[in-house]
Each structure stands twice: as C-alpha cells, then as structure tokens.
Design a protein around this nucleic acid. Structure first.
Lengths: 218, 218
DNA sequence: CCAACTTTGTGCGTGTGTTCACAAAGGCTT
DNA sequence: AAGCCTTTGTGAACACACGCACAAAGTTGG
C-alpha cells in the first residue's frame, strides 16, 4: 500500500514525542486519512491492535518497516548530477529510511570527478560495472528527458529492477521492472487545473470560436 | 483528470516530430495508457476526433491546454531556497508550460539577497506583501518540515489557494485550498516495498519472534 | 465479578475508475 | 456511387477503493 510510508512517518513523530500507544483515530488524523481506512490497512498486515486501547507505537513501527522492507539496506544510484541530482544526493530523508546512495553518475566529463555529499561523481560509461559491483537495486534517473530511455535500458540490462524517474518521459521497460515517476511540471499543471476550476471553469474564450472555424492557428 | 498533462506532453512531442494526426492507439502508447481510457478521457472534453482518421494533434493540444488552464499564465512563488528550491527555480519545464516563478523566499538571512536563476532571494518576512503585490496563485513549499505548516498558514492567509508541498509533513489547510504533495522518501519506500515483494515477500525473520515475546527492543 | 465504556476489525452498500467489445461514423478505393 | 476499411465514442460488465456503522473484544471502575 502506498499509504504505509505516511503512517510510518506519523508514527516516528509520535515516537519522538514519547507516545507509547495510539488509537486509529489519532493516527488517522496525523496521517490525514479516514480512521476506518487506516484500520483496514493495518489489518492487512495482521492484527496488531488492542481493542479498547489502540496500537502500540513501537511495535507498529517495526511491523510497517518490515512490511516495507526498510529493515534491510537498499543501495541507490543517482544518474544525472544536475540541480535535481545534487538536491537528491544531499537529501537527508533517504539515509534515515535505510536508503544508501552509493553512486552518482553523469555523462558530462566536466562534472565527473567532482565531490558531492561525500561521493565522487563517476562517468556513465562505467554504469554497468558500478551497478554490479555495488549491488545497486534502486536507480534514480535525474537526467535530461532525451537521455532517460537509453540510461534505463542500460540499467535494466545491468540488473536494476526498481527505478524512480524524474525525467519527463514515459519509460518503456520489461514488466519485471518497476518504474515510479515524479514529474514536477505535471504536479503544477494539475494544480493549475483545479485553480482554474475554482475561478469558474474554462473561460468562455472568443478565440476558441475562431479556432473552430479554421481562421486561427494556435 | 491527472492524465491530461501526460497526453499533452506526448502531443507536444508529436508536434515537434511534425505529426499532424494521431490515432487513439498511437497516442495511448506514447502516453503509456490504455486506448479506451484515452478516448474516454478525451470524450469528456467534448468530441474532437474524426472516425476513421484520429485526432488532429494541433487542435487537441489547444483543447487540452485550455482545459488545464495553460492558456493563461500562473504566477508561482518558491518558499525555501535549499538544494531542492534551487533545483526547482532552475527547472525549465515550468516556464514552457505557462508557469512563471516570480519570487524565491527564504528565512535564512545568509541566503537572502543571493541571485538564483535571474531572481533575487527575498526574506519570508515579506511573504504577505510579495504574494499580494505579484498576485501569486501557486506556492511551492521546499522548506524543512518544521517550517512548512506555519509557512502554509501564512500563504493561505495571504490568499494562495494552490500549494505544491515537498516537505515531508501532512499540511492542514481549509477545504478551499488544494495541496498536492511530493515526498521523495515515500517514493523510494514504495519501490523498496515492491522490490522486496519480488525477492519473495517479507522474509521469515527470527528477530520477529523475539520481539513478539518481548525479549527485544527495536 | 459485573456492567459500562472504549476501540478494533470488518461486512456491506456505494461510487468511481478501468477495460472489453461493438455499433456508428467517416474516409478511401475502385 | 457503393462497399470496404479504419477508428471513434460509449454501453455494460467488472473490479476495486472508500467509508459507514456495528458487533466483537478488551479495559476500567465500582
């Protein structure tokens, strides 16, 4: 389930506050979901709650971490060391959840050799070797759109089966490979769509009529 | 619909390749969706296809842009100029879709005054004035988690109704305000979950038994 | 030891999204 | 001009996610 990481974050916060026990209602509020949904989600991992009391925070943290596979370490490589790649390599949220960035790769010789967040940038020519030697299991693609498909092809060939893609393209991969994508521009477009709805829907725009009649080229 | 921006991107690519007409099957493949779903989505905007031929690329681009509100310009402010904020402010995908970054704000006096991507970083003390003067309609939150809620409170008070949140917290806002969130750590956790599934599900872990029996603290 | 209270776990109705499959519609060829 | 071929638009079955509401289970207080 995609909501487990949100629950986990809320639980970690509660732990930091010294809370030992939490009800589905409280945790649901903290995670921003419906309490029935939360209980149903948790019941899918087995039943870890006590009726009349709630859930033990510490135990729940452990169970969810285990379900998500966070009790083991994941080796991550970041391909593309532009602004975004740099931001990602310095992001503290990775290490604290068991993700270890083990390689930064870039195709630009001007960037190769630079030290960033304690790692030396390496050349994408060595991608296959690096992936295999360091047992990379998750790759993050932060390259330009034009390079993404060929990079992912090489990653898949080298044995990577999970990819987080920031490049604005639809990647084609075998079914056995998981790709999640984050497209910053798309997020903004969805917001713009809703924003426009609030302002009264697509405006009656005289330009459209002209376009329909073939008088105007956009 | 959240898929319209994906269709739009595919259509722009086709346009660049000089394609004038496209069938639902081709466009669906390019966008990575089922063709029936694509046709149904497009039919919700009205019927712009010609049976036996397909859709006119240029006209479809215009219709989708209009539906998404991209025919107008959106004024964006980025709050928090750390690594991520810098990456976002330099991201080319915004300007090309009608999003104009009009302000970069940060609470750190050491960053205020710095020039980034053609803009001067301003202090968050001036948030209200800047939002109102420049008619900011969309705000991007790239602050630490601890600052996010108070920042969004001030943004909402100043009249912002759409927020893109990169801070790993659940923001509480009035119903009239839209919040979309992007959490990089959560994306990786979801990948780790699937990766673990491929490797045979959560492992039978002897540690669990000890934990259950109360002998072990995690 | 019993009764009242709290909270979990879940059965069920509802709504939404997805996909198949096909009839209707338009263009193209002869 | 007539029939064939391609492709759209959509009806209908299916699947799934959501949330209400309640019974079961456990705790607490007298």
């Amino acid at each position: 389930m995609a909501r487990l990481p949100v629950y986990l974050r809320a639980l970690h916060n509660l732990q930091d506050m010294g809370v030992a026990t939490v009800s589905s209602e409280e945790l649901a509020t903290a995670a921003g979901v419906n309490s029935a949904k939360l209980r149903k989600d948790l019941s899918h991992l087995g039943s870890y709650g006590t009726r009349g009391v709630g859930y033990e925070v510490e135990y729940l943290v452990y169970q969810i971490s285990r379900e998500l596979g966070l009790t083991q370490d994941w080796v991550v490589a970041i391909i593309g060391v532009g602004n975004l790649g740099r931001a990602l390599s310095g992001y503290g949220g990775f290490a604290s959840r068991g993700f270890r960035v083990a390689a930064l790769l870039d195709a630009d010789p001007g960037v190769v050799g630079e030290r960033i967040s304690g790692l030396t940038v390496e050349h994408t020519d060595d991608l296959e070797r690096i992936v295999k030697d360091r047992e990379v299991s998750i790759a993050v693609i932060a390259t330009p759109a034009s390079a993404a498909q060929s990079v992912v092809d090489r990653l898949v060939e080298a044995g990577v089966t999970s990819v987080l893609n920031f490049a604005p393209v639809v990647l084609s991969v075998p079914d056995s490979v998981d790709v999640r994508k984050v497209d910053l521009s798309i997020e903004l477009q969805i917001l713009a769509f809703h924003e426009q709805r609030k302002a009264g829907g697509p405006m009656a725009d005289p330009v459209v009529a002209e376009y329909v009649e073939g008088r105007l080229t956009v």
